[in-house]
């Protein structure tokens, strides 16, 4: 199964080492992380040494080697968000769920990530839940956001995600 979907990602990119990062982006989007087996296939098909694939996957922040939770909360820690108190938000998650940035809760429900800047500095502190932006966050707003994720579980948030994606598509035409 994994090979089949990888097939479509690799189509037209074989033996083109410079496509490595783009390919890994697509793999990451599909599986939410990059499985080891896929890296071996990518290495073979693109003609990139395995160590180079492993290095690239480790070097760039966008790639995750560990499977991520069903929901991903990203806290922006850019300068603008920092001076407006984004560290409080990390503290909130640490206090509430006991996870630090990069970790996933034990039930696989939530992964906390940090990003250095989302470019939405005017709205800081910014939090992103599964691709949806939340502006001017405070610890209490974040607490209720996490609670709503935990209550609704995966289904609703997935719906919401599908909805925003659909909208974006609509807008592009």
């Amino acid at each position: 199964m994994s090979v089949l979907t990888l097939e479509s990602i690799l189509k037209g990119r074989r033996s083109q080492p410079h496509q490595l990062i783009e390919v890994l982006h697509d793999v990451q989007e599909r599986y939410r992380h990059i499985p080891e087996e896929d890296m071996r296939i990518v290495s073979r098909e693109l003609g990139v040494p395995l160590i180079e694939v492993y290095r690239v996957a480790n070097f760039y922040k966008a790639f995750s080697l560990k499977p991520r939770g069903r929901n991903v909360i990203t806290i922006c820690t850019g300068t603008a968000c920092h001076v407006r108190g984004s560290n409080l938000l990390s503290n909130q998650v640490l206090g509430q769920l006991g996870i630090s940035p990069g970790d996933t809760t034990e039930d696989g429900q939530l992964t906390l990530e940090q990003v250095n800047c989302l470019g939405a500095c005017a709205l800081g502190p910014v939090v992103v839940l599964n691709g949806t932006y939340y502006k001017h966050m405070t610890p209490s707003k974040l607490r209720s956001l996490i609670n709503s994720v935990n209550e609704k579980g995966i289904e609703d948030t997935d719906d919401a995600k599908g909805k925003t994606k659909g909208k974006k598509r609509q807008r592009s035409h």
């Binding site: 040494p49 395995l50 160590i51 180079e52 492993y54 290095r55 480790n58 070097f59």
Partner: peptide
Amino acid sequence: ARAIGFVGR
């Protein structure tokens, strides 16, 4: 051989 390399940053 490229058996080892710098990993991480």
